[in-house]
Write a protein that binds this DNA or RNA. Structure first.
Lengths: 165, 165
DNA sequence: ATATATAGGACAATTATAGTCCTATATGGC
DNA sequence: GCCATATAGGACTATAATTGTCCTATATAT
């Protein structure tokens, strides 16, 4: 797949709309109408975002949702973490029986983890502010060829202990 | 999700094994036994990789698969493209009815596309060679904060014409 | 009180993925 | 030529993930 789920995609659209007036309160009904997505679906996204404290809910009439923080302080990684069910990562740390022992497999896994880490860092540095910017600002993130830091042997050990194959 | 499929994961493991002796011929049976994955599954992966000309098949007895090119010239992006069914991208370029007209939605989509592009470039620069390296070499790829190039207005137009919402 | 909101969980339908199997074709050795 | 061994390609099934919806409970303003 290598793809964020539709719900997360909706999440970015919803948040982008809210980012236009970062201090305003938006009801789920309002947002649903404005982005043209069904109310129950938008509601689900907003509830999830509220649980992660990315938006703050106000109940009752005249209630709704508002951004908990300014757009430039909400990272794309946080949004993904909030809505995606499985933990972040291009590859899964699965324990296929007997694979963990194979040096070959283990090495590939370790290098995948580092690739994951790079992508993760990129998405941590990108914010909701960047997402709504006319063009992505100079504070945005790009990937380029540079030396990777030394491998962290301790971290790899930890992965093993947690059943990483 | 934001995750490569298991089949693609197997693909990297298979190729990593083959990369240890880049000129040798490996039968599907042999590979299946050595990486401890069921034969039909390994076969499926290898057939797919052969179609993309990443490995070359030799039929008949004493036949098998061998790498078509040296590990350092096979990019991770190529492997993903070969095995994943859907085109590369963190976000899908879906046409949800009536969303394409909304400036807000369109802007978010455009910026997502650029994020995709960054990740794509990273995976194009990483090779099978890097994946089997003891530690990822200095030729490997990391993501860091740098200015993004100017937006390519022409490309964005093309996306629109192809029904991108 | 009542209308308007969100909270949280349960549910059904759809879709994607994984894995297997079957038949056809090619090659080397006897 | 015949047989064992390999891959080619597609079909098919079972499983899992995802989506989207709905229901009931709770909170708030008028």
């Amino acid at each position: 797949m290598l793809r964020i789920s539709k719900l997360t995609d909706y999440g970015t659209i919803v948040l982008a709309l809210m980012a236009r007036d970062p201090l305003e309160i938006y009801s789920a009904t309002d947002i649903a109408r404005r982005i043209n997505v069904a109310l129950p679906t938008v509601g689900k996204v907003l509830k999830t975002l509220a649980r992660a404290d990315i938006v703050t809910a106000t109940r009752g009439s005249h209630g709704g949702y508002s951004l908990s923080r300014l757009p430039s302080t909400i990272s794309i990684a946080q949004i993904i973490d909030a809505i995606e069910e499985q933990p972040f990562g291009l590859t899964e740390c699965t324990s296929i029986a007997g694979l963990c022992m194979q040096e070959n497999h283990c090495r590939v896994r370790a290098n995948w983890m580092r690739i994951n880490q790079s992508v993760r860092i990129a998405l941590e540095n990108l914010t909701l502010g960047d997402l709504v910017a006319e063009t992505v600002q100079s504070t945005a993130t790009q990937i380029q060829k540079v030396p990777l830091p030394k491998i962290d042997a301790q971290k790899l050990e930890e992965n093993h202990e947690h059943g990483c194959s």
